[in-house]
């Protein structure tokens, strides 16, 4: 049986986040620029703008996790410690429609880490020529602390991404393809009697994203 799992917003969010994160990684901590025709693109400015896009993506995903499609809701995939331990003990014994209990907690950690990363970036100062748009609203000590966090926490984010990719490939080896549902939105399931997961049109998510992009760029751009 094939069911609709991930709505259009979740898929768009996921792959946009991949692109934005790659760009942030590439432009982060680099004093460099590109010159295309007569237009100069400073890496630090690109990093700033991509960071704002990421902030909008994360905020929208959090809202979608409350009001969006059922598989995307925190209430659907956030499980108690018992379920998480059970999952760690035997990860492949049960079929999980949405994020499994282990993955669910990772999703929340990842969203929190990325949110913190975007926010600390707004208060950061590279001591050369970039000052975050909110850096002047706090004391110098706070700027130093948040800048230092921003630099060091990224390694942790990379570690979570690595764990995520490894998990995807382990599932692939177990003949469970988690990649194609994230592209097509559809998932083939073996268990027959499952309640249909309520879907919301992904377009609402994109409208929400556009609204978030507008106020974030207007305020912090």
């Amino acid at each position: 049986m094939v069911i609709k799992l991930w709505d259009g917003f979740i898929r768009g969010f996921h792959w946009l986040l991949v692109v934005v994160l790659a760009g942030l990684w590439y432009t982060g901590g680099s004093v460099d620029y590109l010159e295309i025709n007569d237009t100069v693109i400073e890496f630090v400015d690109v990093h700033h703008k991509l960071g704002l896009i990421m902030l909008a993506l994360i905020l929208t995903r959090i809202i979608w996790g409350v009001v969006g499609s059922q598989p995307a809701r925190f209430s659907t995939f956030l499980k108690g410690p018992k379920a998480i331990i059970g999952y760690i003990k035997s990860p492949f014994s049960k079929e999980h429609l949405t994020h499994n209990p282990g993955g669910g907690i990772i999703v929340v950690i990842m969203l929190a880490m990325l949110l913190a990363q975007a926010i600390t970036g707004l208060f950061s100062d590279d001591a050369i020529f970039f000052r975050g748009p909110l850096a002047s609203t706090v004391s110098n000590d706070v700027v130093r602390l948040l800048t230092s966090y921003h630099k060091q926490a990224f390694d942790f984010i990379l570690a979570i991404i690595a764990l995520h990719i490894v998990a995807i490939f382990v599932y692939l080896l177990m003949k469970k393809n988690l990649i194609s549902p994230m592209i097509t939105g559809k998932k083939a399931i073996t268990s027959s009697a499952t309640e249909a997961l309520k879907q919301r049109h992904g377009g609402y998510g994109f409208i929400l994203l556009a609204v978030n992009l507008i106020w974030i760029f207007w305020w912090l751009g």
Binding site: G29, V31, D32, Y33, E35, V40, D126, A127, I128, F129
Partner: peptide, 13 residues
């Protein structure tokens, strides 16, 4: 001037 300025910035970094 831009490349020279960026080269200086890189020595800072």
């Amino acid at each position: 001037l831009r490349p020279k300025f960026m080269a200086a910035a890189r020595t800072c970094q």
